[in-house]
């Protein structure tokens, strides 16, 4: 039997524009998801430890193939205040989704067919980054959204005290600068697609701060810590940098 109740259903919203279907690996230690985005330039890794659920029960390993497109619709109509419970019995072909709206007491139940997802295994090596910078997640989202209104990609430059996001396009250029108190091994400058940063920043509601781990030769990491776990977004560097 598997049963998990999760109070941050907004997490689904943060990844729905990146991946359509994914296996949810359910273990006694928690739930994990690791998947490449549709355009094969980003990887989403989510870990939710068992302690973040009330309750959590999983007595055997289970892989649930879930359509995030469908899950998003279900969660969206329940509203932000809803809790989401996943249940599965010994039949791995179907699982139950139970949404509970705390304010009204309304309970919505679904029986969902598990999807057979042909998912390749991704191995993520441990990496030492040139810069690891933590900034308020709301500021990060504001900067990405603001710059993306007019421009397509952003150059990140980080020095010991400040991180600068600057961008230029047909209409001109723009930049935003933020103070930070993080450690850098040296100054760094690299270019990232704003479209993807805007997507990653949809996880803003999950955490007060976001950590950017940057190096020029390896995928950049955008990480949101959630209660008993994390949401990590890896993004491939531009070729020729």
């Amino acid at each position: 039997l598997f049963h998990a109740r999760f109070e941050q259903a907004g997490l689904v919203d943060a990844i729905k524009d990146l991946i359509q279907d994914s296996d949810f690996h359910c273990r006694d230690s928690g739930i994990a998801l690791r998947n490449m985005d549709n355009s094969q330039v980003a990887v989403v890794v989510i870990l939710l430890e068992a302690g973040g659920f009330l309750p959590y029960h999983c007595d055997r390993r289970l892989n649930l193939g879930i359509s995030l497109t469908s899950l998003t619709k279900i969660v969206h109509y329940a509203g932000d205040e809803a809790t989401l419970a996943l249940k599965a019995n010994d039949n791995p072909d179907t699982f139950n989704l139970v949404l509970e709206c705390l304010q009204t007491g309304c309970i919505i139940k679904y029986d969902i067919k598990s999807r057979d997802i042909d998912q390749e295994h991704l191995e993520i090596p441990k990496t030492d980054y040139a810069a690891t910078i933590t900034i308020p997640s709301a500021e990060f989202q504001r900067i990405c959204r603001n710059l993306s209104q007019l421009l397509e990609s952003v150059a990140n430059e980080a020095s010991e005290e400040r991180i600068k996001f600057s961008s230029s396009g047909d209409i001109g250029s723009g930049s935003a600068t933020l103070r930070h108190n993080s450690d850098l091994t040296g100054p760094i400058a690299l270019t990232i697609s704003l479209k993807y940063l805007v997507n990653f920043s949809k996880a803003t509601a999950l955490s007060y701060s976001v950590t950017l781990s940057l190096s020029s030769e390896v995928p950049q990491l955008v990480e949101y810590k959630v209660e008993s776990g994390f949401a990590r977004f890896y993004f491939a560097p531009q070729i020729g940098e």
């Binding site: 355009s39 094969q40 295994h121 991704l122 191995e123 697609s193 890896y234 491939a236 531009q238």
Partner: peptide, 14 residues
């Protein structure tokens, strides 16, 4: 997107 690397080349299990 032009100039954008493929994430699979970094993370796929060899």
């Amino acid at each position: 997107a032009p100039g954008q690397g493929d994430i699979g080349s970094y993370f796929f299990k060899k």
